[in-house]
């Protein structure tokens, strides 16, 4: 190529007089030293930045996070256990309270039953006494009624016999009435 008569100031065999590329610029040997030199510097700089600053920092943050997560999980486990214990205690207290309550209920029931039994007994006794008294009174009334009936019957018989024209013999009437009433 006519690079000897260069007017554009491109001082390279890889660039033509118009500043265009001759062939593949990648294969231009004139530039490789420059590229290699700056690349090596770049890689060394990146390596030192990464190994001295960036990677240890990120690693420590990741480790810290891992630690925090592990601790949090352990704390959560502990709290869960505590909650379970509390629940068990609560359940136990509840069961105790229930047992106590049923005991009190049973005691109260028994007491009431005893009172009730005593009252019933007393009432029964009173009723029995009253009944006996009443029976006595009824018997007395019955007896007196019987006597009254006999007297009335004798009188009535005497009167009827008198009305019919007979002469009532008191003794005979009494005997007849007594016999009739027995019969």
């Amino acid at each position: 190529m006519a690079t000897e008569t260069d007017t554009h100031g491109a001082v390279s065999a890889c660039v033509d007089s118009h500043g265009g590329a001759v062939g593949m610029p990648q294969l231009c040997g004139d530039w490789m030293g420059n590229q290699v030199f700056w690349l090596v510097i770049t890689l060394v700089v990146i390596y030192f930045i990464l190994s001295r600053v960036a990677l240890p920092r990120i690693a420590s943050v990741l480790a810290e996070r891992q630690g925090t997560i592990t601790n949090d999980i352990a704390a959560a486990e502990e709290l869960k256990q505590k909650a379970e214990e509390a629940e068990a205690a609560y359940n136990k207290a509840l069961a105790d309270a229930r047992a106590e309550a049923s005991k009190i209920v049973a005691e109260a029931k028994a007491e009431i039953q005893a009172d009730l039994d005593a009252a019933t007994q007393k009432a029964d006794a009173e009723i029995a006494a009253k009944a006996a008294e009443s029976a006595k009174a009824i018997a007395a009334i019955q007896a007196s009624a019987m006597e009254s009936i006999e007297a009335v019957a004798k009188d009535t018989t005497g009167e009827i016999v008198g009305v019919l024209g007979g002469k009532a013999d008191a003794k005979a009437i009494t005997a007849a009435v007594t016999a009739e009433m027995k019969g």
Partner: peptide, 13 residues
């Protein structure tokens, strides 16, 4: 617009 020597700061740099 000079020549590209190994140490020249270029667009690669």
């Amino acid at each position: 617009d000079g020549a590209v020597a190994w140490y020249t700061p270029t667009n690669v740099t």
